[in-house]
Design a protein around this nucleic acid. Structure first.
Lengths: 136, 136
DNA sequence: TAAGTATGTTAGTGCTATACTAACAACATG
DNA sequence: CATGTTGTTAGTATAGCACTAACATACTTA
């Protein structure tokens, strides 16, 4: 599954912010995203426009929801993040340092590769923070 | 050793190109870098100016040499590249795919973290291509 | 209802990184 | 000296990121 989602670091952070601050059925507000990302609303709007053009979100008057593709991209990224985090922590790297470093490139790793790496580290069911890793 | 060298992807590629196409004591020509990187000379000059301002190269009339800091940065990057490549290939990822993916983020990984990852994969002496991994 | 507050959006600016073409300068070689 | 190679500048363009100022919209409350 090559080149699954071609996004930037900021777009990655934004997808994660949207997913993790939305209730299951309610959209997230622009202002909330801006607060969490510590950015001004116009900056966030720029990022949202790009995510929209890539088909990862829908938005309407400041309300933002992930599309199915957006949710899929979130799942790929977060799974990859947790697998890499496990790998880093198992290697003896500090958890917070691992999380910080891995965030810089988790969104670049191919999902097939992430699955193979997870097998290598023993198919963990959770990341070092205790959050689940899902194998579909 | 946090934040060792703050460079971009293109700058990373350029440092590697310079190191690997220079004879030990002879500088590399701009035109050679441009050919290898498949870029036009003015584009390469822009990259070289940034590398120069970061103290990684010296240049004079199209001749380019890495500074000590530049060589150090090359060594960090290439070691990290080979360690990650080993990890990916040991996980069952195709060698060329591993090389390609790892190139996208090898220059972002902290060198201390890279050392810990290498211990985790058994302190390999070479990468899957057979090139040496140096432990200083 | 009018005034005020909160929220979202546009417009405009600025900077870095990337990459190009066109034009010009410098140098070497025949 | 003419030609050609090589390097450099100048100028253009795009994407990404981030901001302020101004405007629009909507909700709230006096």
């Amino acid at each position: 599954m090559k080149e699954q989602f071609n996004i930037t670091r900021r777009e990655r952070d934004c997808v994660i912010t949207i997913y993790e601050s939305a209730s299951p059925d309610f959209p997230v507000r622009l202002s909330k995203i801006a607060t969490i990302m510590q950015l001004k609303p116009p900056t966030v709007i720029e990022i949202l426009k790009r995510l929209e053009s890539k088909g990862l979100i829908n938005r309407e008057r400041g309300m933002v929801v992930l599309t199915n593709a957006g949710k899929e991209s979130y799942n790929f990224i977060i799974n990859c993040h947790r697998i890499l985090e496990t790998l880093f922590v198992d290697s003896g790297i500090d958890l917070e340092e691992a999380c910080r470093e891995v965030s810089a490139f988790d969104y670049m790793v191919d999902s097939d590769s992430a699955m193979k790496l997870s097998t290598f580290v023993g198919t963990p069911k959770t990341c070092p923070h205790g959050k689940p890793i899902i194998y579909g």
